[in-house]
Protein backbone atom coordinates (compact mmCIF):
# COMPACT_ATOMS: atom_id res chain seq x y z
CA UNK A 1 0.00 0.00 0.00
CA UNK A 2 1.12 3.53 -0.71
CA UNK A 3 -0.38 6.78 0.50
CA UNK A 4 -1.21 9.21 -2.27
CA UNK A 5 -2.41 12.80 -2.18
CA UNK A 6 -3.99 14.32 -5.25
CA UNK A 7 -6.52 16.94 -6.18
CA UNK A 8 -9.75 15.63 -7.69
CA UNK A 9 -12.11 18.22 -9.12
CA UNK A 10 -10.45 20.90 -7.00
CA UNK A 11 -10.61 18.97 -3.74
CA UNK A 12 -7.54 17.49 -2.05
CA UNK A 13 -7.78 13.75 -1.34
CA UNK A 14 -5.36 11.52 0.62
CA UNK A 15 -5.83 7.74 0.55
CA UNK A 16 -3.89 4.51 0.79
CA UNK A 17 -3.93 2.45 -2.41
CA UNK A 18 -2.45 -0.81 -3.60
CA UNK A 19 0.20 -0.63 -6.32
CA UNK A 20 -2.01 -2.35 -8.87
CA UNK A 21 -5.05 -0.09 -8.32
CA UNK A 22 -5.97 1.60 -11.57
CA UNK A 23 -6.82 5.29 -11.52
CA UNK A 24 -10.34 4.46 -12.70
CA UNK A 25 -10.83 1.96 -9.86
CA UNK A 26 -9.61 4.55 -7.38
CA UNK A 27 -12.04 7.16 -8.72
CA UNK A 28 -15.03 4.84 -8.90
CA UNK A 29 -14.54 2.59 -5.88
CA UNK A 30 -12.53 4.60 -3.37
CA UNK A 31 -13.98 8.03 -4.15
CA UNK A 32 -17.37 6.79 -5.42
CA UNK A 33 -17.08 9.04 -8.46
CA UNK A 34 -18.92 6.64 -10.74
CA UNK A 35 -19.40 9.07 -13.60
CA UNK A 36 -16.13 7.84 -15.12
CA UNK A 37 -17.05 4.60 -16.84
CA UNK A 38 -15.20 1.41 -17.68
CA UNK A 39 -16.15 0.15 -21.11
CA UNK A 40 -13.47 -2.09 -22.55
CA UNK A 41 -10.77 -1.92 -19.85
CA UNK A 42 -8.22 -2.23 -22.67
CA UNK A 43 -7.69 1.48 -23.51
CA UNK A 44 -9.65 1.21 -26.75
CA UNK A 45 -13.04 2.74 -25.98
CA UNK A 46 -12.39 5.98 -24.07
CA UNK A 47 -15.35 5.74 -21.66
CA UNK A 48 -12.84 6.25 -18.81
CA UNK A 49 -11.19 9.44 -20.10
CA UNK A 50 -10.33 11.93 -17.35
CA UNK A 51 -7.85 14.81 -17.25
CA UNK A 52 -4.57 14.47 -15.35
CA UNK A 53 -2.72 17.76 -15.07
CA UNK A 54 -4.90 19.06 -17.88
CA UNK A 55 -4.19 16.19 -20.30
CA UNK A 56 -6.83 13.70 -21.37
CA UNK A 57 -5.83 10.16 -20.42
CA UNK A 58 -7.50 6.77 -20.19
CA UNK A 59 -7.96 6.13 -16.48
CA UNK A 60 -8.11 2.37 -17.08
CA UNK A 61 -4.49 2.44 -18.28
CA UNK A 62 -2.79 4.39 -15.52
CA UNK A 63 -2.16 3.45 -11.91
CA UNK A 64 -3.62 5.53 -9.09
CA UNK A 65 -0.15 5.93 -7.55
CA UNK A 66 1.00 7.58 -10.79
CA UNK A 67 -1.53 10.34 -10.08
CA UNK A 68 0.10 11.14 -6.72
CA UNK A 69 0.49 14.92 -6.61
CA UNK A 70 -1.55 15.44 -9.77
CA UNK A 71 -4.65 17.47 -10.52
CA UNK A 72 -7.36 15.13 -11.75
CA UNK A 73 -10.59 16.31 -13.35
CA UNK A 74 -13.55 13.99 -13.90
CA UNK A 75 -16.98 14.44 -15.41
CA UNK A 76 -18.39 15.20 -11.94
CA UNK A 77 -16.39 18.43 -11.86
CA UNK A 78 -17.46 19.74 -15.27
CA UNK A 79 -20.73 21.41 -14.26
CA UNK A 80 -20.61 24.43 -11.93
CA UNK A 81 -21.49 23.78 -8.26
CA UNK A 82 -25.00 25.17 -8.87
CA UNK A 83 -25.55 22.59 -11.59
CA UNK A 84 -24.96 24.87 -14.58
CA UNK A 85 -23.60 22.64 -17.34
CA UNK A 86 -20.27 23.32 -19.04
CA UNK A 87 -20.42 24.54 -22.63
CA UNK A 88 -19.65 21.02 -23.90
CA UNK A 89 -22.24 19.38 -21.65
CA UNK A 90 -24.88 21.94 -22.63
CA UNK A 91 -24.16 21.35 -26.30
CA UNK A 92 -24.44 17.58 -25.88
CA UNK A 93 -27.87 18.15 -24.31
CA UNK A 94 -28.99 20.69 -26.93
CA UNK A 95 -27.88 18.60 -29.92
CA UNK A 96 -28.71 15.21 -28.43
CA UNK A 97 -25.09 14.09 -28.49
CA UNK A 98 -25.88 10.82 -26.79
CA UNK A 99 -28.09 7.79 -27.12
CA UNK A 100 -27.58 5.30 -24.28
CA UNK A 101 -25.16 7.69 -22.57
CA UNK A 102 -22.52 5.15 -21.55
CA UNK A 103 -19.72 6.73 -23.59
CA UNK A 104 -20.81 10.29 -22.79
CA UNK A 105 -18.52 11.06 -19.81
CA UNK A 106 -15.48 10.09 -21.87
CA UNK A 107 -16.76 11.94 -24.92
CA UNK A 108 -17.31 15.12 -22.89
CA UNK A 109 -13.87 14.94 -21.27
CA UNK A 110 -12.16 14.26 -24.60
CA UNK A 111 -14.07 17.06 -26.31
CA UNK A 112 -13.23 19.46 -23.49
CA UNK A 113 -9.53 18.64 -23.87
CA UNK A 114 -9.73 19.15 -27.63
CA UNK A 115 -11.38 22.55 -27.36
CA UNK A 116 -8.83 23.71 -24.81
CA UNK A 117 -6.02 23.11 -27.32
CA UNK A 118 -7.96 23.86 -30.48
CA UNK A 119 -10.90 26.20 -29.75
CA UNK A 120 -12.29 26.20 -33.32
CA UNK A 121 -11.67 22.73 -34.76
CA UNK A 122 -12.89 21.68 -38.16
CA UNK A 123 -15.34 18.78 -38.34
CA UNK A 124 -12.50 16.57 -39.61
CA UNK A 125 -10.32 17.56 -36.65
CA UNK A 126 -13.15 16.71 -34.24
CA UNK A 127 -13.63 13.29 -35.82
CA UNK A 128 -9.88 12.67 -35.77
CA UNK A 129 -9.60 13.63 -32.10
CA UNK A 130 -12.40 11.21 -31.20
CA UNK A 131 -10.42 8.29 -32.63
CA UNK A 132 -10.02 6.75 -29.17
CA UNK A 133 -13.63 7.21 -28.06
CA UNK A 134 -16.12 4.62 -29.18
CA UNK A 135 -19.91 5.10 -29.13
CA UNK A 136 -21.42 1.66 -29.54
CA UNK A 137 -24.81 3.19 -30.35
CA UNK A 138 -22.87 4.68 -33.29
CA UNK A 139 -24.27 8.10 -32.44
CA UNK A 140 -21.21 9.95 -33.68
CA UNK A 141 -23.01 12.42 -35.88
CA UNK A 142 -24.68 14.35 -33.08
CA UNK A 143 -21.62 14.03 -30.87
CA UNK A 144 -19.55 15.76 -33.54
CA UNK A 145 -22.30 18.32 -34.07
CA UNK A 146 -22.46 19.03 -30.32
CA UNK A 147 -18.70 19.56 -30.12
CA UNK A 148 -18.77 21.90 -33.13
CA UNK A 149 -21.63 23.82 -31.45
CA UNK A 150 -19.74 23.94 -28.14
CA UNK A 151 -16.87 25.60 -29.98
CA UNK A 152 -19.26 28.39 -30.96
CA UNK A 153 -19.41 27.42 -34.63
CA UNK A 154 -22.57 27.40 -36.71
CA UNK A 155 -23.88 23.86 -37.04
CA UNK A 156 -27.05 24.54 -39.02
CA UNK A 157 -25.27 23.38 -42.18
CA UNK A 158 -24.35 20.03 -40.60
CA UNK A 159 -27.30 18.05 -41.86
CA UNK A 160 -28.69 15.05 -40.03
CA UNK A 161 -27.60 11.85 -41.72
Amino acid sequence: MAEITLTVNGRSVTKSVKGNTLLVEFLREDLRLTGTHVGCDTSQCGACVVHVNGKDVKACTMFAVEADGAEVATIEGEAAPDGTLSAVQAAFQEHHGLQCGFCTPGMVMTATALLRDNPKPTEAEVRDYLEGNICRCTGYHNIVKAIMAASGQDVTSIAAE
Binding site: S43, G46, D56, V57, K58, T61, T110, E131, G132, N133
Partner: peptide
Protein backbone atom coordinates in the same frame (compact mmCIF):
# COMPACT_ATOMS: atom_id res chain seq x y z
CA UNK B 1 0.33 6.71 -32.75
CA UNK B 2 -2.79 5.35 -31.06
CA UNK B 3 -5.23 8.11 -30.13
CA UNK B 4 -4.89 11.45 -28.30
CA UNK B 5 -5.25 10.01 -24.78
CA UNK B 6 -2.75 7.23 -25.50
CA UNK B 7 -0.32 9.83 -26.91
CA UNK B 8 -0.50 11.76 -23.63
CA UNK B 9 0.86 8.72 -21.73
Amino acid sequence: IGDPAVRNR
